[in-house]
Design a binder for these strands. Structure first.
Length: 450
RNA sequence: GUGGCUGUAGCUCAGCUGGUUAGAGCAUCGGUUUGUGGUGCCGAGGGCCGUGGGUUCGAGUCCCAUCAGCCACCCCA
């Protein structure tokens, strides 16, 4: 006998859990639909060449590779094999991989279907993704992303739409205390210029992204050691405070940053977004320390967290000006966001935000003998025709066992069938919550349970 | 990839400084005299004490290794 077990970082979902997960996904889906997005799906596997090189070096190591079928060793890179060089061996034995996110497969989809797509294209996609990360709290190897993207327009109205979507989704889920942080990739570049650090843009973003973890002192020490001078550090310090996203914040930013093309773009785009959402009263933060790891972002970037949840971001996104370029389609700008279903679930569970899951099957037919069982089968079919979910107890067991089953499964009603009921053309319907029961004909039964 | 913590029944755990046949609660199944569930009462099944080695007269308990799980770092949803 072998032990029943799952691969590390993967989970089964019980009916109770699935009902709650569905609540989250249908909420997100209905908001996406309301904003004019249509669904697509893509395969779990992509060609490895589609995935590699899109998520940075670290991302490549986190990709699950799928071993080729057949005699894969025959066509393996013999030199790499002899040298036991795993990394070099991979391309010759694995040509597929599990998708790492939904954005890159989407870019591939857009390029491949460009002649059939009408731009701007608004799609949503809710599917699992896989990462060979070491699992821990709020981190799984298989998890679901709920993405929405608009591709084929540079309009900042899209960014405004996503801010409204964030607000509606989190409010509906009961997570109205969410914090949405906004930044602009060009603002980061302008900051690098202002601080005399344009040559080490990546080092700058890596450092300031750690602000909430290692504090201002840690960040400044790191930057000083990387060669930033004291005046640069002082300037930076004025910028990194997380502030309300409003005109005042933009004015201040404009005052501190030295003139550059990037500054102009960042300020102008952020003001445009602000203008689009001003009337809604939605609040968000301008956080110039927000960097986000994925380097395909070029414009506005978003990240949403639930303060006090102990789990990192539950959603992220941003604008990418040239993600389709790598697949041969130039000058197509897109912007999108992604909700992390599993993390939202964890946060909601911890905050006790799920309502009691109700049993959707209305009634269980219980019986005393073979003829009552057959009688029940017919009645159940009549109820189903009327759209009432019902089950006939499938085995011949004592009536108290049948009731026990109904109780444990949370069926709201039990319909008892015996000789009396069959003789009179009725059933004994018992309300399991109140304990009350009454004799009803089929017609009355349907009327009662509708 | 780096570090820390933990492995005893299906689940949560107890098992004192090593000492007879390994315990509890919950869960499961059966019964409570058979046309009615929840609570109560009675009873049953279920454990190579993660795995391998070592110390010892004797190991669930001590030591080493290994595997697995959890947590943190890195990075991220």
């Amino acid at each position: 006998m072998q032990k029943a077990a799952l691969p590390k970082g993967t989970r089964d979902f019980s009916p109770e859990v699935m009902k709650r997960r569905k609540f989250i996904t249908t909420t997100i889906e209905s908001v996406y639909k309301k904003f004019g997005f249509d669904p697509i799906e893509t395969p779990a596997m992509e060609k490895l060449s589609t995935l590699t090189g899109k998520y940075g070096d670290e991302g490549d190591t986190l990709l699950f590779k799928v071993l080729d079928s057949g005699d894969f060793l025959a066509k393996a890179d013999q030199e790499a094999l002899n040298n036991k060089d795993s990394n070099k061996l991979i391309p010759s034995v694995a040509s597929k991989g599990l998708r790492y996110d939904l954005t890159v497969p989407f870019a591939r989809y857009v390029v491949q279907n460009q002649t059939h797509i009408t731009f701007p294209f608004r799609r949503y996609q809710m599917q699992p993704v896989w990462r060979a990360d070491r699992p821990q709290k709020g981190r799984y190897r298989e998890f679901w992303q709920c993405d929405a993207d608009v591709i084929g327009t540079k309009s900042l109205l899209c960014e405004a739409d996503f801010i409204k979507i964030y607000h509606e989704v989190f409010s509906t889920l009961g997570l109205g205390n969410y914090e949405l942080r906004l930044n602009h990739r060009k603002a980061l570049e302008a900051i690098a210029k202002t601080c005399g650090f344009e040559g080490s843009f990546t080092a700058l973003t890596v450092a300031i992204d750690k602000l909430d973890k290692i504090g201002w002192e840690g960040v400044s020490n790191e930057l000083l050691s990387k060669g930033m001078d004291h005046s640069g550090v002082e300037t930076l310090k004025q910028l990194l405070n997380k502030v309300d996203f409003d005109q005042q914040a933009l004015d201040l930013l404009s005052k501190i940053l030295t003139d550059s093309k990037e500054k102009d773009i960042a300020i102008e785009e952020l003001s445009t977004v602000l203008g689009f959402i001003r009337s809604t009263g939605i609040r968000l933060k301008l956080d110039l320390s927000l960097a986000r790891g994925l380097d395909y972002y070029t414009g506005c970037i978003f990240e949403a967290t639930i303060p006090g949840s102990g789990i990192g971001s539950v959603s992220g996104g941003g604008r990418y000006d040239d993600l389709t370029g790598i697949f041969g389609l130039k000058d197509v700008s897109g912007v999108g966001i992604s909700f992390g279903l599993d993390r939202i679930y964890d946060v909601m569970l911890a905050a006790d935000l799920f309502k009691e899951v109700e049993q959707e099957t209305k009634v269980l037919f219980c019986h005393f003998d073979e003829s009552a069982l057959l009688y029940g089968i017919n009645l159940a079919d009549k109820l189903r025709e009327a759209g009432i979910a019902s089950v006939v107890y499938s085995d011949r067991k004592k009536i108290n066992k049948q009731f026990d089953y109904a109780h444990k499964c949370n069926f709201p009603y039990v319909a008892v069938i015996g000789d009396d009921e069959m003789a009179n053309g009725v059933v004994q319907l018992k309300n399991m919550a109140t304990g009350k029961q009454e004799k009803l004909t089929v017609t009355d039964l349907i009327e009662r349970l509708k």
